[in-house]
């Protein structure tokens, strides 16, 4: 299935204020892959995702999604394929009610009223926030906003999900719900996160960024257990792999 392949070739990005955020990043993600992008604050994760979704354009190099280069004239096509969850849900929710916000995307694609309604109620049910549908998005709690933002993406039924810190601000149960939800999603997923436990559970593959460069790329199980690498990238090992904080017993597995 060529249409879900993402290819990033020698990507550079420099912000208008001359800050180099990405330096020569290359990778290839095939259909159905679930890839974690990890790295410390300021490593360039958000910048990379923005380039994938065509929110910015590279200073050098290129991004190809499903055989289509991400350039201005292909954006409508790219946007149908990629659903992008922003790091800050406040940026993503702009209508007066949660329902209208979730319906915004489907309505833009001129679907008929019934189909829009169906998609919206499905998306709301998937993230479990049907009860919030008539509330104003800007009056929700942080976690509720996050859930609503995810629903706005799901209602577009994208082929590829790109998420920036999806679990930030979620309480443990909602986080668990999110993990279950994403695990059930068979399409390509790209998840930038500091939540290494989430990456560990959701992603088969992990790319480690540091100062805008890929310092490692491989199976999650190998990368996240490589303590030297984790240390070098400025992160901490996933809790599930750390020793028990109470009894100091070492984890048996791995």
């Amino acid at each position: 299935m060529i249409h879900h392949i993402i290819e990033v070739k020698n990507l550079h990005y420099i912000y208008p204020d001359e800050r180099k955020a990405l330096n020569s990043v290359s990778f290839r993600i095939v259909h159905g892959d679930s890839v974690g992008i990890v790295g410390a604050n300021g490593a360039g994760k958000t910048t990379l995702l923005m380039l994938l979704a065509g929110a910015f354009f590279p200073s050098q190099g290129e991004v190809i999604v499903g055989g289509v280069p991400v350039v201005k004239k292909n954006l409508p096509l790219i946007r149908q394929k990629i659903g992008m969850l922003f790091q800050n849900p406040d940026d993503q929710l702009f209508m007066t009610t949660v329902y209208d916000d979730v319906a915004f995307g489907p309505r833009n694609y001129k679907l008929d009223g019934q189909e829009v309604e169906k998609r919206v109620s499905q998306a709301l049910a998937m993230v479990g926030i049907e009860h919030l549908q008539n509330r104003a998005p800007y009056k929700l709690s942080g976690g509720e906003k996050r859930a609503a933002a995810i629903a706005t993406i799901l209602s577009m039924t994208p082929d590829i999900l790109v998420m920036d810190e999806p679990s930030a601000a979620l309480d443990p149960r909602s986080r668990r719900g999110l993990i279950t939800l994403l695990n059930g999603f068979a399409h390509t997923k790209i998840i930038a996160s500091h939540d290494l436990d989430l990456v560990f559970e959701l992603c088969d593959r992990t790319i480690v960024l540091k100062d805008g460069e890929v310092i490692s790329d491989g199976p999650t199980a190998t990368i996240l257990t490589d303590m030297a690498l984790i240390e070098q990238s400025g992160l901490e090992a996933p809790l599930s792999l750390q020793n028990c904080p109470v009894c100091r017993a070492r984890k048996e597995s791995l």
């Binding site: 929110a55 409508p76 946007r79 149908q80 209208d100 833009n108 009223g113």
Partner: peptide, 17 residues
């Protein structure tokens, strides 16, 4: 916010259903 709007297929036409 504008980015989020175009991301979701906004092409300058507000479709309010």
């Amino acid at each position: 916010v504008y980015q989020a709007m175009v991301q979701r297929g906004f092409i300058g036409e507000y479709n309010t259903g």
